[in-house]
Nucleic acid binder design. Structure first.
Lengths: 135, 135
DNA sequence: CTGCATCCATAACGATACTG
DNA sequence: CAGTATCGTTATGGATGCAG
């Protein structure tokens, strides 16, 4: 579906896809969306999310949630209780995005072995270029 | 498809999806794959690609291509001529990944307007927090 | 034309401490 | 428990120059 000019793809100036990938550059955004999508009842608290997304820091989780909220992909519901309680859930728009993300993750699951080999190749390669020519 | 433990998703330790997203953290990798996927004949030269991926620098294009080659997602064919000629194309594995990427980009196209509003909201928000309380 | 190496700015990230 | 702020490290990306 790109625009073709002179037989070349002039596709990604400030197009939808490009902006979408900008969003993905926030490392954890797709995982948060994906986790919320799979969450029972579709609502999750920050603490729960952090425990699920192994390795994410509190800072990054909150930052990602804020980012997604501003962009209208997730909804933030505050309960006026002590201690504080907040629940996040996908907006209708967020839910439409969850589909493609699911597809992508599905690919990741199906090609787990290939992905392992990729990491392996990459490791070998960087090692080689690192040690190779010192003397 | 996550693994559920204690009702929480312990999904993304060093799973396929996580590794996949690592690959995507190379900003241009999905666009390069996508461009090659749409390219006539499925083979493209670096120069052509750079002209198509508006805004990519030579350095990043080459780096991305190398990365994708090492990972076995694209193939590099060298022609022994002067001046040098090289063509890149998707490997079979790369082609299977192109599908999900296409889906994602499709979403980006369909929700272009929403994505515009997202950027807008983000702009407003960061402006507000930047200027808001200085006086 | 393809590819590599430097230098440099800045953006992303994590650890930690602190507030309500 | 939710959220913010600060600091320091590392990764990312762009500009430029050079080589085959």
């Amino acid at each position: 579906m790109p625009d073709w000019v002179d037989g070349k793809v002039y596709f990604y100036a400030d197009s939808g896809p490009r902006r979408l990938m900008d969003l993905f550059s926030v490392k954890w955004s797709s995982m948060v969306l994906h986790a919320l999508w799979h969450w029972p009842e579709g609502r999750a608290r920050p603490g729960e999310l952090q425990r699920s997304l192994q390795g994410i820091s509190k800072k990054m989780l909150l930052q990602t949630l804020k980012e997604l909220e501003i962009r209208g992909l997730i909804h933030r519901q505050v309960f006026q209780v002590i201690p504080p309680k907040v629940e996040y859930s996908l907006t209708p728009l967020g839910k439409t995005l969850a589909g493609p993300i699911e597809q992508l993750y599905q690919w990741g699951l199906e090609h787990r072995q290939a992905l392992d080999e990729m990491s392996e190749n990459r490791r070998k390669h960087t090692e080689a270029s690192a040690s190779g020519d010192l003397r």
